[in-house]
Design a binder for these strands. Sequence first.
DNA 1: TTCTATTAATTGATATATCAACGATATAAA
DNA 2: TTTATATCGTTGATATATCAATTAATAGAA
Lengths: 146, 146
Amino acid sequence: MPVDEKLEDVLYYLIDKTNKVARRYSQEAFVKAGYDITVDQWLVLKKIWDNKEINQVELATSLFKDTASITRILQILVRKKLVKKESKEGDRRHYLLSLTTKGEQFFKQVLGMVKSMRMQGVIDFSEAEKEQIKRLLTKMIKNLEE
Amino acid sequence: MPVDEKLEDVLYYLIDKTNKVARRYSQEAFVKAGYDITVDQWLVLKKIWDNKEINQVELATSLFKDTASITRILQILVRKKLVKKESKEGDRRHYLLSLTTKGEQFFKQVLGMVKSMRMQGVIDFSEAEKEQIKRLLTKMIKNLEE
DNA sequence: TTCTATTAATTGATATATCAACGATATAAA
DNA sequence: TTTATATCGTTGATATATCAATTAATAGAA
């Protein structure tokens, strides 16, 4: 019988837990506020807001998602009339993505809440601790990316 | 136009990225080694190995999963003949979960690789850094739970 | 210019997450 | 004992992740 440490002591498990707790916290806040949106949909909105002329491959890369996932999330956001896709002149393989007027209004309305959600996780962290956790996570990523 | 920090500077985003990188790293290692198993399926195996008489609700709680997800993951593990479900005498609402002989052999075979995967992420971390990152993540979880 | 290779996006299949509804059983209350 | 409530597990619906195959369009090579 091989002996092994408990799952609770495994760092990946702790990261997974933190990630889930943060996502659930954010999702519940959206629901409580009556915003019909998921965390992943919000991230896509945010990225389009920040990069008005982004295409789907760039969107996928920067959000660590598959282009297939992006296609489906965008279908939902277009259905909700928050995002619009327009063919690009010059290269008809891809689209220009942008927020609709409704999408921009929605984004601005939700952003304040999102900012306070971001703070909640580190509410009692010193500046040094905030830097430290980012530094260590970045270091882990480097160790795991070939 | 509200100004907002870049996604790359948001801590939740960095945690999400670390989590995905760690999962992909682990999943690729399983595939390369020819092990037909997902990360989530492995976690369920590990938990049953550690707790021979666990039921599905406890399994779900300890892995931060929904009981519906556990039902479906177990269906797959049973189909692969790695796990068996036996009715419990006394309370027929739930099952006793355990690894089959094949499941135990598989677990022992894979465990060595899993241990080295766990180390890879923190390969250049000092002991103090390992403690630090666990402490800070635990602190974040407390800030975001209930 | 024509053939080939690459790129952007979509779709299908399977695994997982989450919520809600449900069935079977067990426990507590009346 | 009957009734009400709580618990364990399953299933359906929708969203997302991943991989593979496919379409449409562009770019590069012959």
